[in-house]
Design a protein around this nucleic acid. Sequence first.
DNA 1: CCCAAAGTTGACGTTAACGTAAACGGTAGG
DNA 2: CCTACCGTTTACGTTAACGTCAACTTTGGG
Lengths: 131, 131
Amino acid sequence: MIQNTYSISDLAREFDITTRALRFYEEKGLLRPEREGQKRLFSPADRVRLELILRGKRIGLTLEESRGIIDMYERGQDNAEQLNSLLGKIDERRQSLRAQLQDIQAMLSELDDVQARCQHALKNIEEEATA
Amino acid sequence: MIQNTYSISDLAREFDITTRALRFYEEKGLLRPEREGQKRLFSPADRVRLELILRGKRIGLTLEESRGIIDMYERGQDNAEQLNSLLGKIDERRQSLRAQLQDIQAMLSELDDVQARCQHALKNIEEEATA
DNA sequence: CCCAAAGTTGACGTTAACGTAAACGGTAGG
DNA sequence: CCTACCGTTTACGTTAACGTCAACTTTGGG
């Protein structure tokens, strides 16, 4: 098995973040690179986690919330109670994401509105210029 | 004309935020209540701005970004250059919101995935129980 | 008149998510 | 051996967005 790994600066470059951020994510338990001596070796699994973290950030999640989602992914499911609790959390998060979708669509339609008014105003200016 | 206004605690109650937050938004120039003596009188326009601010927060905008959107709304458009610049900003914001939509949809479909795996695991547990 | 409720202005405290700088180790090239 | 570069830890600094007093003023009721 080929142990594909990434150095800290590999990931920093690829995702355009600082090495400081990566170390910070490790500190917070969001990434778990192995060590080769002192040096961190990030696994493909870490890479996936990082993608989730960054996507989370883009939609306004805190690191804690992203950690919650990551935990959903990785929890070793053997116990029915845990699984049901997890399904509950998934549902909550789904609700909240749907609410965000609504908010974003509302914003978009307001932008449509402002844009239309802008274009109308521009048209008026041009007509006055030709008058 | 009926000058419909709101006290600071009216708005605080209605939107479930603190009065401190409202004063803070004023400090930052996002709200512009008039004064009756010392007391703030918020207008319906302030109420709308507040809705925009809170929606912005829900989708992860900073107050500065929300202020940008509010400014789009209120800028007195008389100059063609300004209008065109504004149309540009609207487009940028639209791009970014669309990107967020993508991110959210990706998250949702990952949640679908995790959920399916959960339910599968649960089914296995139940089958083992009956076996 | 007195009190409680609602309001005001400072001013300092807090949390998240890093930035930044200092001081050091390992290693590959010239 | 020296330098460059990549990496490490430790620790203090920073910004946004409020929270949390403290110390008033104002106002409507009893």
